[in-house]
Nucleic acid binder design. Structure first.
Lengths: 131, 131
DNA sequence: ACGGGTGTCCTATCGAGCTAGGACACCGGG
DNA sequence: CCCGGTGTCCTAGCTCGATAGGACACCCGT
């Protein structure tokens, strides 16, 4: 699992990280029972404070996505798949709707929006092949 | 011109407001020479602090989008249309690309993304007719 | 039993951004 | 000329979240 923080994004790092975990579970890249990186190791890797990682893990645990085993580590919870699929679906819908509303508000045609998404998709595909 | 602040959005109010002005200019809803609402009036209308509106206006002026006439008001600058079109286009592209990347990361197919955008578009159309 | 790794918690500090309230200079109509 | 409306600026305080550094309890391999 590869996590990363976009410091230019307006959302705080702790939320970005939590979202990435939800998305990873929803897509199956993380499965129930999988162990997550340790608070300290991940914090060093993505250059944020251990407390910030800890906050994300704590929020996700309260949400039922993660399970903490004291002295051992954090693991993806059993029922996480369903709830993450729902949460991810809702979140993505909201973000797409917001972006679409902005595009229309800026005077773009719906065709232009589709074109941008299509082009962006080609870019994404190429990038994931390359990596 | 109708402005509004989404307090749930992660972007700060001053940026939301500035973006809305850029989009309005880019789409032609605001034309060069048009007067903008006064700092105090708009602040009261959208329930934020006058200083916050002032900050947006100041940023937009430094960007060349607005023109201040002391003791009179703020007006859309002459060359605003072109720069706003460019800025809005870039901004929308970036937001759409980010939302798309999230959707794909959450395991959605590109077809599903198009479907969501299409549905969202129908909703938007209906809403703008209603208002 | 011990030591290293784990999550958890605590206090303190810092920075960004909004809020609050006031002060000032400017313009224009009455 | 006056006075209300305008943009601009200033200081102060507040909230939120990240940062910093440390302390503690737990688990497990050695």
């Amino acid at each position: 699992m590869r996590f990363q923080i976009d410091s230019r994004s307006p959302s705080p790092p702790s939320e970005q990280l939590a979202d990435q975990v939800r998305f990873a579970v929803a897509s199956g890249r993380l499965a129930p029972g999988d162990r997550l990186p340790s608070v300290r190791a991940l914090a060093e890797e993505i250059r944020i404070n251990p407390n910030t990682v800890s906050r994300s893990w704590r929020d996700l645990e309260r949400e039922g996505v993660l399970e903490s085993r004291r002295g051992d580590g954090m693991f993806v919870a059993a029922g996480a798949l369903k709830s993450c699929r729902a949460a991810a679906d809702a979140l993505v819908k909201e973000r797409l709707a917001r972006a679409l509303a902005e595009a229309l508000g800026a005077g773009m045609s719906i065709e232009r929006v589709f074109e941008i998404v299509r082009n962006s998709y080609s870019g994404e595909k190429g990038r994931s092949k390359a990596s």
